[in-house]
């Protein structure tokens, strides 16, 4: 394994034939990993009508794209996609396979890992090659960070959320090799996808919001949560949450920020009634200005923000809403 020159792989994720940002982000990171290992970056891209996408992957740093462009691959199908990827991996023996922590990756990665009898690390926040040329997979845990490795089995597999790594600078001049994957792509019919329904999310999307308001267990109950929703509207902020808010049923899982949820990088972050647990905070590491409201002056959240308000959010938020209203009125009358 010492001088393993086998490639680093990324499994591409696309929607309506466009690459999701996590794919070029992972290709960019893989470029760095592959350079450290002295090897190549290769991407497996499956879909229907995705044959113009390889150039984007080459511009992001890939040298080779395995392209499966076929009507049978249009939608992610667990059995079909697993068979194709496992077949390729058994033949080409990549040393690393990375996937996005997307709806697809979260199901496909463990299916592929189990078939290849190898390890898989969930939702990494960083990846490095160590002195033994092994992939170090970093995740937040217990108020700190832990490093996980897969020392013996290959490939080493990990998922990473969109937004953890930056988009690479594109080099449009880069060309690479396209290897087409031939069908037929058949499955046993034990799982059939009848329909895929896209539901437009409510409110301001977290990914693009310049201000993100996140709230947690401190909201107390549904009434308290309604105040938070009202504040997010008053601030035109994207509304995110911590896990207890999802567990309590106040907020949707899709709006959870953190290691196993969304990674966002707004200009301003306002965290209310949350304790600043590492698993949440890694999701907003990119924010420029950070503000927290918490009723406990000793809360660890205060050591991770620029401005702090010590108060009970259920009493403070109504007053804040009133002050915002007054401010807006003054703006209009000026």
């Amino acid at each position: 394994m010492k001088d393993d020159k086998s490639p680093v792989w990324v499994i591409a994720d696309q929607e309506s034939c466009n690459l999701l940002p996590v794919t070029p982000q992972l290709v960019g990171k893989s470029r760095k990993l592959a350079d450290d290992l002295g090897t190549t970056v290769e991407v497996v891209l499956l879909g229907d009508g995705v044959d113009t996408q390889p150039s984007n992957l080459f511009a992001s740093g890939a040298e080779r794209v395995f392209l499966g462009n076929d009507p049978a691959l249009a939608e992610y199908h667990p059995d079909v996609y697993t068979d194709v990827i496992v077949g390729l991996a058994e033949k080409h023996k990549p040393q690393i396979i990375l996937m996005g922590s997307t709806s697809m990756g979260r199901e496909l990665a463990p299916l592929v890992a189990a078939r290849l009898s190898t390890g898989l690390t969930a939702h990494c926040i960083d990846l490095n090659i160590n002195a033994d040329r092994v992939l170090e997979q970093i995740i937040p845990a217990y108020g700190g960070e832990i490093t996980i490795v897969c020392p013996e089995r290959r490939p080493q597999m990990a998922t990473v959320a969109q937004g953890v790594f930056p988009l690479p600078a594109l080099d449009e001049g880069c060309r690479g090799e396209v290897v087409s994957i031939d069908g037929p792509f058949v499955h046993t019919g034990r799982v059939e996808i009848l329909e895929v329904v896209i539901e437009a999310p409510e409110g301001i999307p977290l990914d693009t919001a310049t201000c993100v308001l996140a709230a947690g267990a401190g909201a107390g109950d549904l009434e308290g949560w309604k105040l938070i929703v009202e504040l997010s509207k008053a601030l035109s902020a994207g509304l995110g949450c911590t896990r207890p808010a999802v567990d309590e049923g106040w907020a949707e899982l899709e709006t959870m920020i953190g290691q196993s949820g969304k990674m966002v990088s707004p200009e301003t972050y306002l965290g209310i009634g949350l304790s600043g647990e590492q698993q949440h905070m890694v999701g907003i590491a990119g924010a420029k200005t950070m503000i927290a409201v918490n009723n406990d002056k000793k809360s660890p959240v205060f050591s991770q923000v620029d401005y702090g308000v010590v108060d009970d959010c259920r009493d403070f938020v109504p007053v804040l809403l009133e002050k915002i209203r007054q401010y807006r009125e003054k703006q209009v009358s000026c």
Binding site: G119, T121, Y142, E145, T147, Y307, G308
Partner: peptide, 21 residues
């Protein structure tokens, strides 16, 4: 029987300094 192992645990340093309002 576990392909993966934890090799290191560490605490993380905070880089921001809070100003209380």
């Amino acid at each position: 029987g576990s392909p993966t192992i934890v090799t290191e645990m560490r605490t993380v340093e905070n880089t921001r300094k809070v100003e209380f309002i």
